[in-house]
């Protein structure tokens, strides 16, 4: 697995932990803005590196993973969120998470945030797995 893949996985974990922190604690508004800016900068760098990277094998692996993540990861994420919504007792869980959180979000907003977060986790997982499989096939 190349360094770029590892750095993307680390970045995804950091972003997830950052979102979890902002969600769980009453973070100042400026912290949220700084975190959002960092996420945008990271995304821009990742996007540019796909097309400007000197190594075409690496670029090909990223393009492949993006194609799989968008073609398979998106329907999988939607199915996962739909299953979450249909799970009995999920509203109680979301209400307790909202009560635990110090961010002051309503249960509806908490449910939305959790849905988006789990979708992103699913997309990142599909991206990382497909890219790892691609590299393994090229050895």
């Amino acid at each position: 697995m190349p360094t770029s893949t590892r750095s993307q996985i680390v970045a995804s974990i950091v972003i997830f932990l950052g979102v979890a922190y902002l969600f769980a604690f009453d973070a100042p508004f400026i912290a949220t803005v700084i975190f959002a800016v960092l996420c945008v900068v990271w995304s821009a760098w990742a996007f540019i590196s796909i097309f400007r990277g000197s190594d075409e094998l690496q670029s090909a692996s990223i393009r492949y993973a993006l194609a799989v993540a968008s073609g398979i990861g998106v329907p999988l994420s939607l199915a996962f969120v739909m299953l979450m919504i249909a799970t009995p007792g999920i509203q109680g869980v979301i209400t307790s998470i909202a009560a635990f959180s110090k961010s002051g979000l309503s249960p509806a907003a908490t449910g939305f945030a959790l849905g988006v977060t789990f979708s992103l986790i699913m997309l990142c997982a599909v991206f990382a797995i497909s890219q790892s499989v691609w590299w393994a096939s090229k050895r």
């Binding site: 190349p2 190594d55 094998l57 690496q58 590299w135 090229k138 050895r139």
Partner: peptide, 21 residues
């Protein structure tokens, strides 16, 4: 100007290089 992984994959016939390469 490519990675050693690229050279290895091309040599083993696992990856076809682009026309410029």
């Amino acid at each position: 100007g490519v990675s050693r992984n690229s050279v290895n994959a091309i040599e083993n016939g696992k990856y076809d290089p682009s026309l410029p390469l």
